[in-house]
Each structure stands twice: as structure tokens, then as C-alpha cells.
Design a protein around this nucleic acid. Structure first.
Lengths: 205, 205
DNA sequence: TAAAATCCTGACCGATTGGTTGGTCAGGAG
DNA sequence: CTCCTGACCAACCAATCGGTCAGGATTTTA
């Protein structure tokens, strides 16, 4: 059993919260210390540098997401239901663990720290390959269109979820739209992706 | 004609570049001054504060995007082509003006500065309402499915583009995928969105 | 050409940054 | 009772932060 003192845990919690909301540079050690109810020196007692603290949190975040994604081992894809389940679970997970999700997404898009982007790629690759397998089995079963790249479909599903998560606060303030509940909106978007935007009869490109 | 001194222009260029890449807090006035080839005090001669400089850039960015979007005034949507054009133009514009795009997207998702998020919402709303109108006309013409929310479709189109733009560097490093060229990948994703993922009878591309 | 306005700078300010130092304190082992 | 260790902190450090100011250089205007 790894010993983790009370203070260290509080530091990690505060740092994860602040880093995820404001990013690496906008958060000072002093702010983390204050929010953790600890002196600044204590942080350097537990972590050798600000960057080490950040990477520690990033690794933990990747670990968390990894274990959660494991719970989505699914049966072969004889219908679109596993796809729906995956998408809604993925979306729910993002909103449930906002701090972790924001942290990883931030690292993905910003990527100042070299180690960080590599980690993010690793985590994202995990999502992707799992989802791609799911889609390919669906293609073999004849449920999903065969003349498309499974990777494209996977990217589209994950991409829409990510976009909704990132832009939710903005989407709400948009005029003339009906984006009220993330989960419900996500279902509608996925349905769009499944059925297509075009009207069924006229699908001439 | 508004007079803009040589120095001021260089400051704006440097600031836009740095802010878009690293965010507000991670960029110091000194770094902007150095990259602009100007002394730090000169920046405060032209701008009263760091925040004012940032907002100035943000406003300019919104203006740029606004004028570009105006060039997409399109004829009524009797086919799916205007939709393709909009999407590809939108994507191309993001990659052509990476700094501006990143700046606005960053402000959208981060949103530390109150004024910033409002501006981002305004710009994004511009995209959206234009696109929604386009889609609704397509629905009336019978080209697009009627039993869907035009706002959902618009969000999906823009969302996939945004996701691709933001995550392009990561997508490339993903294993077992064929994401080589943004424009080409974007076309494939849009096709997916138009036709749907699920298999249907008459869906030859 | 002199005055006025603008552009630009080096020197400087108090505050804050990430990080170090020396040391206190509680508790477990011998 | 001593010794050791890990947790913790106030005080401190050099560097950098955003920002100010007085004044030199250059251009505009009168």
C-alpha cells in the first residue's frame, strides 16, 4: 500500500481542479497551496517542481480514464445499441469527471509540455482503437455501412462528444437553438450521425 | 484611414501569434516586446494594459472572421453542394488563419476574461445562424431530412470541423488511421454526416 | 524653423513567480 | 530515553511579472 499523506492528497485535488480550469501557466504554486490549506513549501516537499506536480496529475488522470474505459467491454455489435451506449457513456464520463477531461483535452490541444501530449495521445488512442473495433464488427454484421473508414466514423463520434463537452457553455448561449441537456443533445447528434443529414431517398452526392 | 505605426503593427502581430499559441497568462509582455523587436515600454505606449492589448487582438480576430464569412453568401440550397462548400470553406479558413482561429476557440473554451467569451459567442453565433438558414432552406427544398433540428445539423457540421482543427496534430499520431490531409479528411467526415453511418439500401456514393 | 505631437526607450517600481533554506514537531523503532 | 524520519512551515532568494516615468528621437504641424 502506497502511503499518501492527507496533505499530499489535498494538494493533488487542488492542483487538478485549478490546472484543469485555468491551465499550467495561469496557476501559481501559491494558489494551489492556499486552496489545499497548506504552505507553499509543503508542495515542494512532496513534488520536486511545478512541472512534476503537473505531470503527476496528468498521469493519474490518464489512469482514471483508462479504468473507466475498461468497463465498456462490449458484446459484438449486432445492432447500433453498443454504439449508442459507448457514445453516451463517453459523454457522461466527460461531464462526470470534468476536471480530468478538461485537463487531458487541454494538454491535447495546447501541448506545451512534450510528455503531456504523448500521454494524451496514448489515452485517446485507447478510446479510438476500442471504438474502431466496435464499428468494424458492426460493419461485418451488416448493421453499419461498409463503404466507409471505421476510423472516420470513430473520430466523428468522439469528435462530436468532445465538441459538445468543450463548447457546452457557449452552445447554451447561442440564439435560436434548443440545447438544454447535454445527454439528450448528444443522443440527437448521434442519431444524426447514424442516419445522416440528407433525406433518405435523394442521396445523390 | 486609421494610422497604425510600424511598431504597433508588429506588436499586434507578435501578440496574436503568441497569445494564440500559449494563452493569455503564459505570454509575458517582455516576450511580446522581444518578438516584435520593440522595447517593453513601447507596448504600454500603444496599449494601456496587457488585457487591453489582448482584447484588441480578439476584436480584430472577430472582425477578420466576420468579413471572411460574409463571402459565403450563397444561393438557396437546392442541392447538398452549398453545404459542402460551407464546410470546406470553414475548415480551410480555420487552417489558413490558425492564429485567429486558435485564439477564438481558446477564448470559447477557457473564457477567463468575461468580454472574451461574449465576443466568441457573437462570432460563433454568426457562423451558426448563417448555416442554420442554409440548412433550413435545404429542408424546405426536400434535399435534407425534415425530421431533424437544423441547429443540431449545424452544430454537428461546425463541431466536426472544430474538432479536426483542434485535434489534428493528435489525430495524425493515432495508430491505424488514415488522416493525412485535413481537407480530404474533412470531406470524408462531412460525407459521413450527410449519408449516415448506418447501412441503408440505396447509398452508393 | 520653432513648437507640438507622436514614437520609442532605459531605468525603475512594488508585487509575485518558482524554488530553497533552516528548522519545528509528532510519532515509530531501538 | 534517544534517534531517526517524514510532514510541515516561516522566511528568504533571484528572477520575472505588469506597469510607470522622464526624457531622447523623429515626424507633423503652424
Amino acid at each position: 500500500m502506497v502511503r499518501v499523506s492527507n496533505g499530499e492528497k489535498r494538494i493533488l485535488e487542488a492542483a487538478e481542479n485549478l490546472f484543469s480550469r485555468h491551465g499550467f501557466d495561469a496557476v501559481s504554486i501559491q494558489k494551489i497551496a492556499t486552496q489545499a490549506g497548506v504552505s507553499k513549501a509543503t508542495i515542494f516537499h512532496h513534488f520536486s517542481s511545478k512541472q512534476e506536480l503537473y505531470i503527476t496529475i496528468l498521469k493519474q488522470a490518464c489512469l482514471d480514464i483508462g479504468t473507466i474505459l475498461q468497463s465498456l467491454e462490449k458484446e459484438p455489435c449486432t445492432s447500433v445499441k453498443p454504439l449508442r451506449d459507448f457514445a453516451s457513456a463517453h459523454l457522461k464520463n466527460m461531464f462526470d469527471q470534468q476536471d480530468v477531461s478538461r485537463l487531458i483535452l487541454r494538454e491535447m490541444t495546447d501541448g506545451d509540455i512534450k510528455q503531456g501530449q504523448a500521454l494524451a495521445v496514448e489515452v485517446f488512442g485507447e478510446h479510438f482503437s476500442r471504438l474502431i473495433v466496435l464499428i468494424q464488427s458492426g460493419q461485418q454484421e451488416g448493421v453499419l455501412r461498409k463503404n466507409m473508414d471505421a476510423a472516420d466514423a470513430a473520430a466523428a463520434i468522439v469528435g462530436l462528444n468532445v465538441f459538445m463537452f468543450q463548447s457546452w457553455s457557449v452552445l447554451q448561449h447561442l440564439p435560436a437553438t434548443s440545447f438544454t441537456d447535454p445527454a439528450h443533445t448528444g443522443e440527437r447528434w448521434l442519431r444524426l450521425l447514424l442516419l445522416g443529414i440528407t433525406d433518405k431517398e435523394e442521396t445523390a452526392a
